[in-house]
């Protein structure tokens, strides 16, 4: 079982900011495997103990309606010039199957559904703290 991660929204940590030399991707476009814009990053979820961004809180705009999702940062590539976050494993099928995020808890079930949608092998559970 993975150790619990102290996940917090960056906006809830007024004493912290994105480190110098790294982009603040809030407001950037989220692009999938085909390069099309799927949504926008609205917030960063950080591991306050490790002082690292772990997830991107994004809003998908395609499909039947807007959907709020969490995207693991370690699967993303950043393009500062295009102000875009590329997630190659984010296909149309993945977007459709992606679990909506209720902005309450990063539950083990949500983490598992997220990995499944992105085609990641299950690697145990991620225990989250209330956001």
């Amino acid at each position: 079982m993975e150790p619990a991660i102290n996940l917090r929204r960056l906006r809830d940590l007024p004493d912290f900011e994105v480190a110098d030399g790294y982009p603040d991707v809030r407001g950037w476009a989220v692009r999938g495997a085909l390069g099309t814009a799927l949504g926008t990053v609205s917030e960063l979820l950080v591991d306050a103990d490790a002082e690292q961004v772990r997830y991107l809180d994004a809003q998908f705009v395609g499909g039947p309606g807007p959907k709020r999702v969490l995207l693991p940062l370690h699967l993303a590539s950043l393009d500062a010039e295009a102000r875009s976050v590329f997630i190659p494993s984010l296909t149309a099928a993945a977007v459709a199957a992606y679990p909506a995020y209720a902005e309450e808890l990063l539950t083990p079930a949500y983490a598992a559904a997220m990995r499944q949608a992105l085609g990641e092998a299950p690697a145990g559970e991620v225990a989250g703290e209330p956001l």
Partner: peptide
């Protein structure tokens, strides 16, 4: 792949 550290203001 990507990494974004944070720091104290």
């Amino acid at each position: 792949m990507a990494e974004i550290p944070i720091q104290r203001k």
